[in-house]
Structures are given as structure tokens and as C-alpha cells.
């Protein structure tokens, strides 16, 4: 079989199978002939190595041209609307929780800094001896760091979950309209190993600092007030 015959048979078969862009496909094989012949192969050799035109045309037919939709698209869209409503509420809660943890982090860090600096805006912070305040400040700042790390993790998790859900949605629609399915996204948050290690270390250190600072602060307060419930002794929370 020579070049002309190969291309003619390929074109006929592609036309018979109602495949689009026949010219483009045929010109690709024409190019293949040109490259191979430039390397010194004869037309017959190239055609033999290419395989039978009929078989190749059949492979184009299965190359995603004749894919049929897998189900009713309208039904899928309707189902997705309900799922979206549900998942939407879920994501609002998750994002709200992330925001709450972020606010906790900022609030405890600010409170700790105020105690440390002996700064009491609008007398909002109840009075306590400076030594006790120092210990409490340390534990509050540690809590701020700990919740910042928590917020980071949780934020990454929520973002990842949203992505996984987005991919799931996309794949459902793709399956319904016969398009290609993309690989699913794992909802596991992903940090590079080095960042992961560092975050974990920061979380552990700040957790320990928080616990030790809080216990030490409590003991110091109780000792200096002479009462276990030192807030009563110092008249806190009393108008």
C-alpha cells in the first residue's frame, strides 16, 4: 500500500464513521509520511508500520467522539440544586467556625499584650497583681498562637473540602452530559512536609506554653489572693 492509497482508505473510513475534522486527521498522517520518508523509509514501509487504515479509523471512532450522555442532565441539575443548598449551609458553618477561631486568636493575643504592657483600655481588664498578669499574659499569647495554627489548619481543610465538593459537582455534570470525568480531589488538607512539621511543632510548643502558663498563673493568683476562687477575693465581675 502506498501513501496515496493509505490516506484515501483512511479518509473513506473516517467519513463512513462520521468523524469530525477528517482533514486535520488525514494531514497528521500525511505529515507522518513526510517525516518518515525524510528518514529514508519507503511509502510502503511507513504504511505497514502505521497499521491498517480501517483499524486506525475505528480507533478515532472510540476516541470520545461517540460518547453518549449517561443520564438525564435536567435531573442531575435539579438534584445538584438541592445538594448545593444543603452543602452551602454546611460551608457557611465551616467558614464561620474558621472566622471564630481567628477572632479567638486575635482576642487572646491582644489581651495578653495588654496584660504584658500593663495597659488597661477603658478599665476593661479586672485588676490583678502584675506578677500574676505576666504569667497569664504568657499563657494568653500562647493560646493566640495555638488558635492561629488551628485556624490555618481549619481554613485549609475547609478550602480543600470546598474544592473536593466542586470537583464532585463538576464530575456529576460531566457524566450527565457525556464529558470526561476528572480525578476526585481528596478532602485531606495538604501542606508541604516542611511546613507541616513546623506547624505541628509550633502547635505543640504553644499548647504546652498555654497549659503551663495557665496553671502557673492560676496558682500565683490563688496564692496572692489567699483564696482558690481568687476572682471573688478581688471582686471581679461585680458591678
Amino acid at each position: 500500500m502506498n501513501r496515496i492509497e493509505f490516506l484515501k482508505r483512511l479518509r473513506e473510513r473516517l467519513d463512513a464513521l462520521a468523524i469530525g475534522d477528517v482533514d486535520e486527521i488525514v494531514s497528521q498522517y500525511e505529515e507522518h509520511f513526510a517525516y518518515k520518508q525524510a528518514d529514508g523509509y519507503s511509502e510502503e514501509e511507513v504504511a505497514a508500520k502505521l497499521g491498517s487504515p480501517e483499524q486506525l479509523a475505528a480507533q478515532f471512532a472510540t476516541a470520545g467522539e461517540g460518547k453518549r450522555p449517561g443520564g438525564s442532565k435536567a435531573l442531575t441539575v435539579l438534584g445538584l440544586v438541592f445538594t448545593d443548598l444543603f452543602a452551602g449551609m454546611f460551608f457557611v458553618v465551616l467558614y464561620a467556625w474558621t472566622a471564630a477561631v481567628a477572632v479567638l486568636s486575635i482576642a487572646s493575643a491582644v489581651l495578653g499584650a495588654c496584660l504584658l504592657a500593663g495597659f488597661n483600655p477603658y478599665s476593661l481588664i479586672p485588676g490583678l497583681p502584675y506578677g500574676c498578669a505576666l504569667l497569664m499574659a504568657g499563657s494568653l499569647i500562647a493560646l493566640g498562637v495555638l488558635s492561629a495554627v488551628g485556624c490555618l489548619y481549619f481554613g485549609a481543610f475547609t478550602r480543600r473540602l470546598a474544592r473536593a465538593y466542586g470537583r464532585y459537582r463538576r464530575n456529576l455534570l460531566a457524566a450527565a452530559s457525556g464529558r470526561a470525568i476528572a480525578p476526585p480531589v481528596s478532602p485531606q488538607p495538604f501542606f508541604p512536609a516542611r511546613v507541616n512539621r513546623r506547624l505541628r511543632r509550633i502547635a505543640w510548643v504553644s499548647l504546652c506554653a498555654f497549659a503551663v502558663g495557665f496553671v502557673a498563673g492560676y496558682i500565683a493568683c490563688a496564692a496572692s489572693a489567699g483564696a482558690l476562687e481568687f476572682w471573688h477575693a478581688w471582686g471581679w465581675f461585680v458591678q
Binding site: 486527521i25 498522517y29 507522518h32 502505521l50 486506525l56 480507533q59 476516541a63
Partner: peptide, 9 residues
């Protein structure tokens, strides 16, 4: 494998 197989892929 036949040279032509890559194009459909």
C-alpha cells in the same frame, strides 16, 4: 505498537 495508534490517543 503500530505507529499510527498514537494519533487517535
Amino acid at each position: 505498537i503500530s505507529d499510527g495508534t498514537v494519533y487517535p490517543i
